[in-house]
Design a protein around this nucleic acid. Sequence first.
DNA 1: GGTACCGGTATCAAATCCATACCGTGAGTC
DNA 2: GACTCACGGTATGGATTTGATACCGGTACC
Lengths: 125, 125
Amino acid sequence: MGKAYNVMAATCPSRTVLHRIGARWTVFVVNALADGPRRFTDLKAHIQGITPKVLTETLRSLEADGLISRQEYLENPPRVEYALTPLGRSLLVPLRAVRLWAEQHVPDIDAARARHEDRAATGTA
Amino acid sequence: MGKAYNVMAATCPSRTVLHRIGARWTVFVVNALADGPRRFTDLKAHIQGITPKVLTETLRSLEADGLISRQEYLENPPRVEYALTPLGRSLLVPLRAVRLWAEQHVPDIDAARARHEDRAATGTA
DNA sequence: GGTACCGGTATCAAATCCATACCGTGAGTC
DNA sequence: GACTCACGGTATGGATTTGATACCGGTACC
């Protein structure tokens, strides 16, 4: 069967999937859970700059899509652990590649941006 | 040297790179250019649902980051072609993987969403 | 002269994202 | 028994992004 869905079609369901993946913080959360379950506060500290509200929203969305699981322990103090599901772990593969690409190509992008600045400053010539 | 940048650090430059990659339409545009240069109107038609404004913005950003090139032909009628640069082509590799994942896992995500709906409707039990 | 195509802009509304502050529960603590 | 703290979040309200729709200047064609 292979490719039944085509992302370029406006009505294709894969659109909504890609939308979720492309959401601002998905790649961070999924990568952060790569090494095992983490707690809310732990995630918040690890993913620097994320606000609790956005983290909550991201986690809820990912949970709704079956990419992560939320396990509540009614201990003391109450503890909540988030972990990747098998589906989430399969997404980790391409997302890790994206993260790696980003980390490896910072100099290239920076250089391109500098060149662009130059060209803009010098005039359109 | 390998990994000099860490995406999880708030101040890391790789953040801005990941931000650009994760922008709403980047994955579509880069994938759309996979098979060779395309013209503005062609892109707009191919990437269904994108508005000209957003397409323009996305193309400008990608150009600034050196991921695509914009070639203007002063012929008649005037023609503008966008193409991936070598850097953009290297990004194509992980992005194509993301696209494939999205296209392949639609049923899984749909099923998860349905389960989630169910659970929400039935009550928290 | 009127219409259509190309490569976009302009304008304004809507969705999203973010910062900051706050809440309820229970534990420790004095 | 009031005070404070950590955990796992919410509430609020503003900034940023995204989107829909309409339009523009230039040229060719009819």
